[in-house]
Nucleic acid binder design. Structure first.
Lengths: 186, 186
DNA sequence: CTTTTGTACTCAAAAACTTGAATACAAAAA
DNA sequence: TTTTTGTATTCAAGTTTTTGAGTACAAAAG
């Protein structure tokens, strides 16, 4: 699984607390690329710590719960690098909206149309949100250091994904509406 | 989870044996949309049968193991329809190649470049394979019955997905190579 | 004539993920 | 001033998914 390596990848960029890692998985990167719950992240960090892939430093906070700042160890970096060097396999899409296509004939077309419209709006706003995340990188494209260039590419991937959904929704809505009209004139 | 409903969706199109359902998840639909192992499919079918969502008819085959042909029951159809009527949630991408972006700075750019090139070829051939699956539908687009129109839309979704990967790979390769050249002239 | 491929199904264990709850405290909003 | 939001972490149960092996037989390929 790659949750482990995704966490290591985050920590390879900068040390973070468990809470901060979890936030990345809930919002930024996770918002549309890789989701993981807080519990999953904390459990994984504990496991990685046991395996010596990460260490943490306890930061006492005045009038607050302590914070554990995790950083990647050299073992962790080696592990990560050897994972990075192996070929990746494409992931299946696993999308509920696709299943609707398989059984859409069981419900009135309007149900499908409304759902596609709802999803289209959602993906449009996700694309916009990602565009904003990317702005900073896209502006200085030529002077980006490698780390940031890669981050930009990852965000671009997510933007494309969302935009592709929007375009497919359009295409599909048109096709369905065309068919609905055809049938009513027959 | 939607594996259950995806199986019901298949059976709502036509009765199938467990083996055939598993094949759908390995190749056709599953090839790029939803993957599930044989074991998962058989287990799920058994559970659905217990719940009365599907029934099977044992077909004895001369000189072969018996075959169980599953069909959806009216309970199954009701279950499926009520699921179809609920809003769907977008799925996270969960792609290993995205994680590479987060930690790409740890390995030589050539490693990333080669991996992206490898993936690009893969997605190109997946797109072609899907195009072929779609040919039959795309040809008679105007005379398609609803069932087939929806199937066409699902395949289109998968084609777009694969093509989007190909385009992103291009975009990324160019950006990385540009940066590599910049740096070697400095 | 033997190996591979394809049909057809089952069992079991481990890893991963989801869901729900709980604890603890601070700062801002209502 | 009470509620909500945000920071920060942990435990537990249940479901899903992955991985690996095993049984059985037929037909085609080598």
């Amino acid at each position: 699984m790659a949750l482990k390596h995704t966490i290591l990848a985050f920590l390879s960029r900068q040390p973070l607390s468990g809470y901060e890692v979890a936030k990345e998985f809930a919002e930024g990167f996770g918002g549309c690329f890789w989701k993981a719950s807080q519990q999953q992240v904390y459990a994984e960090l504990a496991k990685l710590e046991q395996q010596g892939r990460v260490t943490y430093e306890v930061i006492p906070q005045p009038g607050r719960l302590d914070k554990k700042i995790y950083s990647i160890t050299s073992e962790g970096q080696e592990d990560l690098i050897s994972w990075l060097t192996q070929p990746t396999e494409p992931t299946a899409i696993r999308e509920d909206l696709g299943v609707i296509g398989l059984a859409g004939h069981l419900v009135p077309s309007q149900v499908v149309v409304l759902e596609i419209e709802r999803r289209q709006k959602l993906h449009r706003s996700m694309a916009q949100h990602l565009q904003k995340m990317d702005e900073h990188f896209a502006k200085n494209l030529d002077s980006l250091e490698l780390k940031d260039l890669y981050m930009h590419l990852v965000i671009r991937r997510a933007i494309r994904y969302q935009e592709d959904w929007v375009a497919w929704c359009n295409e599909s809505l048109e096709a369905i509406e065309r068919t609905m009209n055809d049938e009513s004139f027959e």
